[in-house]
Nucleic acid binder design. Structure first.
Lengths: 229, 229
DNA sequence: ACCTGAACACCGTTCAAGT
DNA sequence: ACCTGAACACCGTTCAAGT
C-alpha cells in the first residue's frame, strides 16, 4: 500500500485536447495510423475510452487534430529560414524543411489525403509559399499554376507508386527473373543498369531524398522559365 | 409459387473471383471505398458474407484485386495509342489516357497508396513508360530518374492538398474574409486575382485537368532538357 | 465539469456444419 | 466443391449514471 500511495501521489495530469493529440501522434509514429483506435489511445492515457469524447468530438476530429499538430511542426521548422539567394533557393529550402517533418511522421500524407476539404492549418503554409513566389516576380496567375503543379510536393511529399528498387530484392528466384526479363524487357534493363551503376541501391532513404530533389528541381526550373518568358 | 419458380428459374450465375471484383469496383464507384464492406459486397451479390472467402483470401486480397482491375482498364485504354511525334507527345498521350480511367474511379489513387509493395500489375504499365523514354533516347539512369520524378503523375494522378478554388466558396462570411485577408494576404490576393480573371472558376473538372497538364508539361519539358544536354 | 460502465450497431473473420 | 449460420474479437459511439 506504500507503493500504491506513491503511485497515487503522482499528480494525475488532467486530460486535455492537447494531451490527447500529442499521444495520438506518438501512437501513429510508433505503430502507424491503423493502430490508432479510441480504445488504444484511451489506455495509453490511462483513461476510459469515453473520457476522450469530453475533449474531442469524435475520431474524425482527432484526425483533423493530427494534421493540425503536423502542420504546426512544419510551420515551426520553416519559420526560421532566411536568405536572399532568390525565390528558387528559398522555396527549395522551405519545401525540404517541410519534408524533414514529414519523414518523422510517415503516416501523415495518407491522413492528409483522407480529408475532403483542404486542411485549414495548411493555408498558413501556402501563404508563405505564395509570398516567396510573389517576391520572385510571379504573377498571381502563374503562382496559382505553380501551387497546383507542385501539389503535395509543396509540403515535401511525392506519391510514388513504383519503387523500382523494391523489385530488385525479389531476385531469389532466377526463373522468375528470366520470365520478367522477357515480359518486361525495359524494367529488367533498367534494373540491371541501376544495379550495375550502384550496387548499394538498397539504402533507400538517400535515394528517395535525391529523387525527390531531382523532381523538385525539374519543377522549379520549369517555373522559372515560365516566369521569365 | 409460380413467381418463386420463375425467380428460381433465372440461372443463378455462380460466384467467381471475377464477379466478386467487378461488383466490388461497382460499389466503390457508386458509394466510395469506405462503403465497400464484406457484408455489403455479399448482399449485393445475393450471397452470405462467408461465401466470398471461397473466392478471395480476405479483404486485403479484394483491395489488391481492385487495383488489378483498374490497371487492367488502364492498360486497355493505353494499348491502342500510337503516333511517331516524339517521346514527349507519346508519353503525354499515355498518361492522359490513364488519367481518364482514374477519373472514372476516383477512389483508386487512395487504394493504390495503401498497398505497401508496388502493385504488381503496374509493372506492365511502367514497362511501357520506359519503352517510350528509351525510344526517345533516354539513358537507363535518366529514365529511372524520370519515373521517380513523375511519381503518381505517371498514371495520371497528382495529389493536391490545396484546392485554392474551394476557399472561394466560403465567401458567405465577409468578416471572416476580411480576417483572412489580413492574416493570409497572399492567399487572399491570389483568390481575388483568380476570381477577377475568371468568374467561372467553379467548374473544377476542367480546371483540374488543365492544371494537371500544366504540371505534366513542366516535367516533360524539364526531362527533355536533361536528356538533350 | 469531468469521468465511467454497460450496451448497441457495426466491422472482418474462424469454425463447424450443411448440400 | 461450394455455400451457410452462429459466434468471436474487434471497432466507434450513445446513454444513463456516477463524482
Amino acid at each position: 500500500m506504500w507503493i500504491d500511495e506513491e503511485t497515487d501521489a503522482q499528480p494525475r495530469v488532467p486530460l486535455s485536447r492537447r494531451r490527447v493529440l500529442r499521444t495520438a501522434v506518438a501512437i501513429a509514429d510508433e505503430a502507424g495510423v491503423e493502430a490508432l483506435t479510441m480504445r488504444r489511445l484511451a489506455s495509453e492515457l490511462g483513461v476510459e475510452p469515453m473520457s476522450l469524447y469530453h475533449h474531442v468530438a469524435n475520431k474524425e476530429a482527432i484526425l483533423d487534430g493530427l494534421i493540425e499538430v503536423i502542420v504546426g511542426e512544419i510551420l515551426e521548422a520553416v519559420g526560421g529560414l532566411s536568405g536572399d539567394d532568390g525565390w528558387q533557393a528559398a522555396l527549395r529550402r522551405r519545401i525540404l524543411a517541410a519534408r524533414e517533418v514529414l519523414l518523422r511522421h510517415r503516416w501523415a500524407p495518407a491522413v492528409f489525403q483522407t480529408r475532403k476539404e483542404i486542411a485549414a492549418p495548411l493555408i498558413a503554409y501556402y501563404d508563405g509559399v505564395l509570398a516567396i513566389l510573389r517576391s520572385g516576380g510571379f504573377s498571381w496567375d502563374l503562382a496559382h499554376h505553380a501551387i497546383h503543379a507542385l501539389g503535395s510536393r509543396a509540403i515535401g511529399f511525392a506519391m510514388e507508386l513504383f519503387q523500382p528498387d523494391d523489385a530488385g530484392s525479389g531476385d531469389d528466384d532466377p526463373e522468375m527473373m528470366a520470365m520478367m526479363a522477357q515480359q518486361f524487357p525495359n524494367i529488367a534493363g533498367m534494373m540491371a543498369a541501376i544495379v550495375h551503376d550502384d550496387p548499394d541501391t538498397t539504402l533507400s532513404w538517400c535515394d528517395d531524398q535525391s529523387e525527390f530533389e531531382f523532381g523538385l528541381d525539374l519543377l522549379l526550373e520549369g517555373l522559372e522559365r515560365r516566369r521569365s518568358s
